[in-house]
Simulated scan of single mutants.
Amino acid sequence: KCNDKRVSNKTKYYTFARTLPPATKVVKALISLLKEYRWSQFVMLSEKTKRFAQVAQAVKIFASHYKLSIIDEFTVPHNIVSHNITIVRNFIEHTFRKTRIYVILAPVEVQWDFVLTLRQFVNLEDYAIIAIDDDKFNGDTEMQPMRVPSPLANKVITHSHLQAFRAVLKITPTYPTDAQYKYFENRVKQRITQKPFCLPYHKDLFPHI
């Protein structure tokens, strides 16, 4: 499930088979959305990690190619929940008058902090927030609930919270939809327990491989 774009090099990584697209592929969907609604400029917030840095770089390249303007950009540290929320607040104070379109390249924890802080400054009906994160649509149902960050998991999610997220559009890759994929997945799990891999079976680990 590696999403690093470098392993797309089949000359070097000829034994590698993807079951998920590289992280940068989702950027094409983002650019198509911006062009469809003629949103020619936006502000970008990304997490300062290798995974999201790759996506941010791809956004810059595609935006330049299609003549879309990144008005401002900002990064937040990894695991921002352990930092002061003023990082997000300062970013919003600096940018909310510049744009009506935000692109968020960060985990769901950052998205929650951002949306719930932004609503303190503006009417979210006037804004569009496009989010890209690590969540994947599993395709088992027509809808998939948005993950709630652990600090909020034990709190009551109110109607006000839900209303705030009406301004958010999440772009996420899907798992393979081929009917034979589950068969392939099970064969792989069986094979990796054998030589030369010899991966020990763990009932809690294997469902997530």
Rank of each mutant, 00 (worst) to 15 (best):
P149E: 11
P151H: 12
K60G: 02
E93Y: 03
V103L: 06
I132P: 00
K203V: 11
N79I: 07
V59C: 05
Y183T: 13
L45Y: 01
A63V: 03
D113N: 10
K182A: 15
F197V: 01
T172A: 12
S46C: 10
M143H: 09
F137W: 14
D133E: 06
F206H: 00
A167R: 09
L68P: 06
S69E: 12
I80G: 02
Y13S: 04
R97Q: 12
Y181Q: 08
L20V: 07
C2G: 13
Y102T: 09
I130G: 00
A23R: 02
V148N: 04
S160I: 06
D204F: 01
N9C: 05
L20H: 02
Q41N: 14
N3P: 04
K5M: 12
G139R: 06
Q54W: 11
A153M: 13
K28V: 04
M44P: 05
V156Q: 08
S46G: 04
F96P: 00
D135F: 05
V188M: 13
V108C: 05
V59P: 01
A53D: 15
F74D: 09
K35T: 06
T193A: 15
N84P: 10
K203H: 15
K10Q: 13
Q120I: 03
L118G: 01
R89H: 14
D135S: 15
P196H: 06
V115Q: 02
T24Y: 05
P77R: 03
V168I: 05
L124H: 12
M44K: 10
D72V: 05
V76H: 01
Q120Y: 03
E73D: 15
Q120R: 15
P200N: 07
L105N: 08
Y37N: 09
P196L: 00
L199V: 11
W39Y: 06
S8L: 14
E93M: 07
S150N: 08
V88E: 02
E36P: 00
R97S: 12
V88G: 02
F137G: 05
I85L: 10
S40Y: 05
F206W: 09
E142M: 10
D135N: 13
W39V: 03
A58R: 03
T177C: 00
